[in-house]
Amino acid sequence: MISATDITLEWQGGEPDAAGHIVEFATEPHGRYTILQFLPPHQTTFTHPDLMPETSFHYRVRPFYGPASRPIEITLPEGPMGSATKDDHAWAAPRSIPGGPIAKHAIRMASADAVPTGLKAAVMHANGVRFRWTDHAADEEGYLLEDRPEGSADFGVIAVLGPNINSFGLITLPNEKKASFRVRAFYYGKPSNLAGQTTGTIPPGG
């Protein structure tokens, strides 16, 4: 506890070949865990702020693994966020587009042939871009869309997609007008031990 309603987690990393870590929480030790954030592999702390007082929170950390495509750089045209409001965004729904090669390679065996390839982007409007790629993995638990906005040091996860997906549309944030993007076929690693804390009472007027 770093305050009555703020909890900081610390853990040891170092899992070989991990692409990053997932921080999850639940309000019961054996309840349904919710993903808080995907973190880069070198990060080993996380703060969960502004929590409900007098409530128990339980946490675990999981590594995730899998290969990422080559990144592509995108510069979107100028335009206000409102330019997307008349678009029905049907193009943005996650899809499995047929017609590609049979996805038969194992990311759990670190097969170089399981890496997603052919990542392409189509600019749909000033704030929207559709990505397509070729799925080669037979055993992924899903796909991650990651980006690195101009000036950022690391890629971060911006969308979690189901297995076999190879098309997805993104409505970008202002800092994503110019950014690098990639997709990752991934699977979850073994969860850590559980760690729990109960938040305190906020004093009157606090």
Rank of each mutant, 00 (worst) to 15 (best):
R62P: 03
R184W: 00
A138H: 09
L39T: 06
R60E: 00
G156E: 10
Q197K: 13
G162D: 12
H48F: 02
V23Q: 09
A121E: 09
I171T: 14
A153L: 12
Y187A: 02
H136L: 06
M1L: 10
T134W: 03
G128N: 01
H105D: 10
P53L: 06
W11E: 04
Y143P: 01
E24Y: 00
W11C: 04
P49G: 13
T8W: 08
N193P: 08
A103R: 12
L173F: 08
L51W: 08
A112P: 04
P203N: 11
I35L: 00
G13N: 06
P40T: 14
T8N: 15
T44G: 05
I107Q: 03
A185H: 01
I22T: 07
A18H: 01
V23A: 13
A110S: 11
T134A: 02
L51G: 01
R184P: 00
F57E: 02
D50M: 05
A122K: 15
I158F: 04
T134M: 02
A126G: 14
A114E: 07
R184Q: 03
R108Q: 14
A106I: 08
S152N: 10
F46P: 02
L145G: 05
T27L: 06
T199R: 11
R132S: 11
F25E: 03
T45W: 13
P116F: 00
I107H: 01
K178L: 09
R62I: 15
N193G: 08
P80W: 01
E140F: 04
V183M: 02
A19N: 14
G31T: 10
P16H: 12
E15P: 01
M52T: 14
I165N: 04
K177W: 01
V23W: 07
N127A: 14
A137V: 10
E24W: 06
P94F: 09
S69F: 02
I158A: 04
Q37M: 10
D87H: 06
V157H: 02
K104Q: 14
G79T: 02
G128V: 07
P77H: 11
G100Y: 05
P29I: 02
G13S: 10
A106T: 13
L36E: 12
A26D: 02
P203S: 13
W91I: 05
P49I: 04
H125K: 08
P174V: 13
T47A: 13
L51E: 01
L144C: 02
S69Q: 01
T8P: 10
M124V: 14
R148A: 11
K177M: 11
T201Q: 13
K86F: 12
E28Y: 05
Q43S: 13
T47H: 08
